[in-house]
């Protein structure tokens, strides 16, 4: 196990989908819909799109869930008007609204919001020469799906649970 490092199992940054922060949720969806990553001869669909700033620094990431979150009408979000909802025990039943698909125009409008509004900042990362065990620990302890891999202070790729599991599989199977 000591021979494998984060840099060995990561997906190089070039292969991973990324967009600038002012791009729209719509563009992020297009990215997710079209991207495929081929590693170890297997194709996978990225669950995350990285978000960069204009000087090409990594700012954050968005997951599928974040994209969907961005498309949900405000009144369906549990965290809006939270106090009022709690005080009066109000629950909104989505079935009372018109169905999602017929609200095409609303969704299109919402999808034109910038991804920066649903993005998560990057908090955790691993070093290029961190061991596989260290990577596993970071993923598990921080409960994240993916970590940026740093080398000499710069990001060079990402390592996902999928990549780690694949490396682990070789050891245990």
């Amino acid at each position: 196990m000591e021979h494998l490092h984060a840099g060995d199992i990561m997906v190089p940054l070039d292969l991973y989908p990324h967009i600038p922060y002012w791009f729209t949720i719509r563009q992020a969806i297009a990215e997710m819909e079209s991207a495929e990553i081929e590693t170890n001869g297997r194709r996978s669909i990225p669950r995350v799109v990285l978000v960069f700033d204009e000087t090409y620094r990594l700012m954050g990431f968005i997951r599928r869930r974040d994209v969907l979150h961005g498309l949900l009408p405000g009144y369906l979000l549990e965290d809006t008007d939270k106090e009022i909802r709690e005080a009066y025990d109000i629950h909104v039943d989505p079935h009372l609204s018109e169905v999602f698909e017929t609200q095409g125009e609303d969704i299109k409008e919402l999808s034109n919001r910038p991804v920066s509004s649903v993005m998560h900042p990057i908090v955790h990362s691993v070093q290029h020469d961190d061991t596989l065990l260290k990577v596993v620990q970071e993923l598990v302890v921080n409960n994240v799906y993916m970590l940026p891999v740093m080398k000499e202070g710069k990001i060079v790729g990402v390592v996902r649970t999928l990549d780690v599991l694949h490396a682990v599989a070789k050891l245990v199977l």
């Binding site: 002012w22 620094r57 910038p114 000499e152």
Partner: peptide
């Protein structure tokens, strides 16, 4: 043009 953005930690990309 894109407007101002939140300012979390940014990681420099190796290019």
């Amino acid at each position: 043009w894109p407007f101002a953005h939140p300012d979390p930690t940014r990681l420099q990309v190796a290019r």
